Simulated assay, not measured.
Amino acid sequence: MILQRNIKLVTEQHNIPKPSPMADFPMKEWSVKIYLLDQAGNEHPANCFTKVTYNLHPSFEDKTHQTFTEPPFTCANEGWGEFEMSIDLFTTEKGGKNTIFHDLNFQSPEYEVVQPITFKNPSQALLSVLRETGPIPNEDDSKAAAKARKANDLKKKKAVCDFEKMADGLGKLNEDDLLHVIQMIHDHKADETYTKNDIDAGEFTVDLFTLPDHLAKMIWDFLVDVKVV
């Protein structure tokens, strides 16, 4: 699966009263923040990323590579020069790294840039985060297919026997025959078969639609033999 989302980079900058090594270029304090956008363009915390590394100009020396692990992954620094930086965005996926490029400039006090990000074969955990900002491809189709399969399974079960008549027939059984049916259910039920045995109340409950086909057929044949359906 390939999934795409947009991120927004918000850059803010202003002059600070510090001496600059370049006379015509005042010192600046600047910052870059990263947000995840939904389809309407609304900002959300970019918690689809586990960490973000900003690769700055070599003049930052030992601070050239700066990593942050909490949204909005704010990178704040001081300097006088404009430059293009690369930004590495990491997820928990194997090979889950996206690299983008961002132009740091001082033409306005604040500016925003939107960039697309592609996620390849995201895990269920990552999908749950990305689902908050937009649809997941083919998810609706998968749900529809699952619903269709469930309806088809129900149709097949109804073809095995008439569950309304079965329920009515079970209510007509004498105590010995009813205990025989309960034992059949215990011996042949599937993992998904729902049963509840309230010993104190002397009640046994079963969801007939959760019976496996072979068990439903066995019970139906037994009800036919004892002539209650």
Score class of each variant (00 low, 15 high):
L173P: 07
T53S: 15
L130Q: 04
Y194T: 15
K155I: 03
K150D: 09
I117D: 10
D191I: 11
P116N: 08
H57E: 04
I185V: 10
G134D: 00
Q66T: 07
I199A: 11
K147D: 10
N42C: 09
F119W: 06
D207Q: 11
T205A: 11
W30N: 02
I100M: 10
P137A: 07
A23F: 02
K18A: 12
S31D: 14
H44M: 07
A23Q: 08
P135I: 14
C48K: 10
V160T: 01
E192R: 12
Q124W: 10
T69S: 15
E78P: 03
L126H: 14
V114S: 03
F90T: 00
E29N: 08
V206W: 00
N55R: 12
F90K: 11
D38E: 09
Y111K: 06
P45R: 02
Y54A: 04
V226M: 04
I117Q: 05
K156C: 03
H57M: 10
H214W: 00
G134A: 02
W80Q: 00
L154P: 01
A146T: 07
L215P: 05
I136Q: 14
T205F: 08
S86Q: 12
E93T: 10
T193M: 01
Y194W: 14
H57Y: 04
E164T: 10
V10D: 00
H214N: 13
A125R: 14
P116T: 12
V52D: 02
E139P: 07
G171K: 05
D38Q: 09
V160D: 05
F73S: 09
K150W: 10
D140Y: 12
